[in-house]
Design a protein around this nucleic acid. Sequence first.
DNA 1: ACCTGAACACCGTTCAAGT
DNA 2: ACCTGAACACCGTTCAAGT
Lengths: 220, 220
Amino acid sequence: MGKLTADAIVERALEIGDAEGLDSVTIRRLATDLGVTPMALYWHFKNKEQLLAGMADHLVDGFAPRSGDGRPWQEELRELVEGLIRVLRRHPCAKDVLEQTDHTDVPSFLKVWNGSLGLARSAGFGPKESCLISRFLLEGAISIAGSSGHVHRRLPDDEAAELRRVKRLRLQSLPVGVYPYLVEMAEPMAEGGDEEFYDSFGVDLLLGGIDTLAARHSGE
Amino acid sequence: MGKLTADAIVERALEIGDAEGLDSVTIRRLATDLGVTPMALYWHFKNKEQLLAGMADHLVDGFAPRSGDGRPWQEELRELVEGLIRVLRRHPCAKDVLEQTDHTDVPSFLKVWNGSLGLARSAGFGPKESCLISRFLLEGAISIAGSSGHVHRRLPDDEAAELRRVKRLRLQSLPVGVYPYLVEMAEPMAEGGDEEFYDSFGVDLLLGGIDTLAARHSGE
DNA sequence: ACCTGAACACCGTTCAAGT
DNA sequence: ACCTGAACACCGTTCAAGT
């Protein structure tokens, strides 16, 4: 079966990344998994950087921000951020992938970027402000999507629980004189917490910040 | 001269990271720079992870958040974030270092974390909310400090300018039908922009968001 | 306590060659 | 067009040994 395609490579790479962490996604490992020689991959991707970009593209692909249906820009922007977060949450390694990628190499990400840029403009922000806003928003979304447990790979429930336990104990065993709050709040710190709460909280913070800026902007 | 100390190692590591990028910070490279065998470093650091943590600690060390002087928490929180940003800006590779580090291994970072936690509590947020807030704030600060040019190493001015030029052209040569805003705003996108503008904008966004949350919190 | 030598098990990538 | 074989220049890390 001569069915080694770029898509198949990317999909297997994401599987490995989700299951064992992005560090395990290696040209050589990938090749043995796919039953080919490492050098076979170099026909489909110029180098590992391009493979990473392919993974990133696959990640956010399938999410296209709607736009221009006349709703207030706040709503559209919120939908865009929430949609991106939802898509990234499907892959535990998503954050790591996007962190190691030049976003301008990722067409699907550029689409989202373009969308948020447009929305920022339609909100009345100037060109420079809009660039910053869309950057903060997208980076914020990636950050939110990536940190509900801070372990960027899929784990069996018991292992995850054990990891939280150890993390909590580590915090609690810190010198209480130096880090009083960290010790006191070790429990909520170690909890990943419900993703839903985490997400809505983060999104509210981001959009609330933008709202503040917008108000000040039109006020002065 | 037998003066191979942990500090000397960390300092050389940061120099390499700032000048050539964090990828160039390698046990072996570091060793040859310091005129020793690679294995010499393993006496001072258990492994590379610990070395990274040492770099991170050196990075934010020297910044201790003041606190409890009776000012409104908004002011103190702002000072904390701005202070952290200012300190991180001294090293181009700071963001990359902190991204690859488990923050609970970095005492100086824990101090800042503890400070922001306390401020969030004193602002009236609950334990869970305070955890999220301090996380967002610190991640936000790191993100802001790290991305005024998106090249995380020191470059001669002409090379930096050339890099911006190429980046702008790349954006402008995108299909305008798919990415109209990116093409139109290629220039401000490629500009790193004044760091000052970038920083204050980002900090305002973050703190504005928290203010919004605080208002809602005490309102309901 | 502090460092070296030799070895192990990995990486990404190039280049010529096969079909 | 698509893949292999062999080789190059790297990694981090262990372990026994030196002083």
